[in-house]
Write a protein that binds this DNA or RNA. Structure first.
Length: 272
DNA sequence: AAATGAACCTGTTTGC
DNA sequence: TGCAAACAGGTTCATT
């Protein structure tokens, strides 16, 4: 479900609802999601929540005890903040009561989501994070870096852009949307892209992600914000999910191809 | 090393 | 209408 803009939207919602709150009872309705749930979840009673951070597509809920809840939404994970007496949601796997009468509910139909409890800064050393490239808005993610990475790869640019060891947060939707804005076909070999076009691509990635964050992310079928509202960026898709519809710039029909098992969308006239 | 494909799991859409 | 196949926003692992 979520790429960087959706996770950032959830982070903002969680920060608003959780910051300063104290945890009450924690219930787990199953023992495993993608990985086994940490046994210590039940021991968080009376611990206060300090802040909510995002790194790549991970949410980091910092606790006053020094521990950090590291959470990934997978494809279909959702957080809802509801009154504690609300009935259990379908596919709700974890409910963390707060001492203000509300509860943080985690639901995830496909159960690709995962959560772990780590101490202090140890999460930075964890294998989930040690393999990650820079954030797309980090100064480290500049033209020299992206061009150098492209030069040594024969892989198509679209799957490369989705590789989190290069840059984090760009998933299947925003990879297609960025390439459209940069005028680059998704199947172009990375090492065949000139430096000026790499610069266009970098700008396009940052532009698309910022606009999507502003819109509260993209809701296709099931992404929702913490308050249950959808994100509105799907209205602004120029190619994703628009196979057979006319390109907004030239009228040519948008095409759909499969790359590395994922759908890519592009305009054959505007993208070369 | 780099690239590709399968696996994890359920729900929804598509096609016969 | 019914049923099976295809497909869905992510990540990791095994195999070329």
């Amino acid at each position: 479900m979520p790429e960087l803009p959706e996770v950032e939207t959830v982070r903002r919602g969680l920060a608003a609802h959780l910051t300063g709150q104290v945890i009450g009872r924690v219930q787990c309705f199953r023992s495993t999601l993608r990985y086994p749930l940490p046994a210590a979840l039940g021991e968080l009673q009376d611990v206060a929540i300090e802040s909510v951070e995002r790194r790549a597509k991970y949410l980091l809920i910092h606790l006053q005890s020094g521990a950090v809840l590291v959470w990934h939404l997978g494809m279909t994970g959702q957080f809802h903040v509801l009154p504690s007496d609300a009935p259990r949601l379908t596919h709700e796997h974890i409910r963390m009561d707060l001492q203000n009468g509300q509860s943080l509910c985690f639901r995830d139909a496909r159960r690709f989501g995962y959560v772990d409890l780590m101490e202090g800064d140890s999460w930075r050393q964890h294998r989930w994070f040690s393999v990650l490239g820079p954030e797309p808005f980090d100064a480290q993610f500049d033209v020299a870096y992206l061009y150098a990475a492209c030069r040594q790869r024969k892989i198509a640019i679209k799957p490369l852009l989705m590789n989190a060891s290069l840059v984090v947060g760009v998933g299947n939707i925003y990879a297609s949307e960025s390439l459209y804005r940069a005028g680059i076909r998704p199947q172009t070999r990375a090492d065949a892209i000139s430096r000026p076009r790499v610069k266009k691509l970098l700008d396009a990635v940052q532009e698309v992600l910022s606009e999507a964050i502003e819109a509260g992310g993209s809701s296709i079928s099931d992404f929702v914000q913490v308050d249950g509202k959808p994100g509105y960026f799907a209205h602004n898709f120029r190619v994703y999910g628009r196979e057979g519809l006319p390109c907004g710039q030239c009228g040519e029909l948008i095409r759909k191809i499969t790359q590395s098992g994922r759908s890519s969308f592009y305009c054959g006239r505007c993208q070369k």
